[in-house]
Write a protein that binds this DNA or RNA. Structure first.
Length: 294
DNA sequence: AACCAGGACACAA
DNA sequence: TTGTGTCATGGT
């Protein structure tokens, strides 16, 4: 073929997706690299730049290059999960009914463990918009360029543990992560050296997978549970952050004084096998509900 | 302009 | 075991 194609060989695909609120899912504080552009939601998964749009019970995906398989995307979006089956296992109570009603279609993603661990190390006591900014800076500075559509702004992969382990703490601080810089570098070093094998954790029971994560500096119960839930798919992991704590106190213990530890004990026993999904609904419900009114 | 953010940690009592 | 100060940064 001698013709010159000015456009790179993009790929398109359409996936049936009922009960899927793409916007809520991509902005619900589990992943930090999605931006709403005029043409749809744009982000990077692994080394794929991708644009997603929702069209009548289907998700339309565009990549900048031909792809052999879409498994990386269907896995990331968890397109084979039946939301109805998940919601059916929620406790039948008023708070969850309200939360589900307010944002039915909210999903859990299945992210890369290293990106997830690193992102949530950077998340501590930061607003979601700031986490997005830090992660963006980190990718621009330490990530690899990925293929993008012609004329599009550059996009970068999430830096590997090896790439970040080589960075100086001062370089990391340029990305505005502050006191989290030594935590990130230590985790990167641990993963790069093989001391922490993230791949291996997926084969373990939840509680055995949690402890090596907790051994990372800057990783406590909350961040460990985020990684267990958002990267490994342990759907009974239940991260309790300030919003979820607020939701639990307000919706399940109104007028009472409940310690953080008591909240953890309650959530561990009450929400059942799909506790992680319930947690995400409560988080999103609380956050969208208390936004300033116009 | 204060208050707070998808926390963790060292240290106190 | 449970409670407080500290850390860095900037959005609301």
């Amino acid at each position: 073929v001698t013709s010159v194609d000015q456009h790179p060989p993009t790929s398109h695909a359409v996936f049936p997706a009922t009960d899927y609120d793409l916007a809520a899912t991509l902005t619900s504080g589990q992943a930090f690299r999605w931006r709403l552009q005029p043409g749809g939601w744009e982000g990077v998964i692994g080394n794929h730049w991708v644009r997603l749009t929702m069209q009548q019970n289907a998700i339309h995906a565009t990549t900048a290059r031909k792809v052999k398989s879409w498994d990386w995307l269907t896995r990331y979006l968890q397109l084979d999960v039946s939301l109805g089956a998940v919601l059916a296992e929620f406790p039948d109570d008023e708070p969850l009914r309200q939360a589900v009603k307010s944002c039915r279609g909210l999903r859990l993603l299945r992210q890369d463990p290293w990106e997830c661990l690193a992102s949530f190390i950077l998340s501590s006591t930061k607003q979601i918009v700031q986490i997005q900014q830090i992660v963006d800076l980190l990718c621009q500075r330490f990530g690899q360029p990925v293929h993008i559509p012609t004329g599009h702004a550059p996009a970068f992969s999430f830096p590997t543990a090896q790439q970040l382990a080589q960075a100086e703490e001062a370089e990391l601080r340029i990305c505005k992560m502050g006191f989290r810089a030594p935590y990130l570098k230590a985790a990167a070093t641990k993963v790069a050296s093989g001391d922490l094998d993230l791949q291996q954790l997926s084969a373990l029971p939840v509680d055995q997978a949690r402890s090596p994560l907790l051994n990372c500096l800057g990783v406590g119960q909350k961040i460990a549970d985020c990684v267990l839930l958002f990267a490994y798919g342990f759907q009974n992991a239940f991260p309790v952050d300030v919003w979820v704590a607020k939701a639990l106190r307000q919706l399940y213990f109104p007028g009472q004084t409940v310690s953080h530890q008591q909240l953890r004990e309650f959530s561990n026993s009450y929400f059942g096998p799909q506790a992680g999904y319930a947690q995400q609904y409560l988080f999103h419900f609380m956050r969208t509900r208390t936004l300033p009114r116009p």
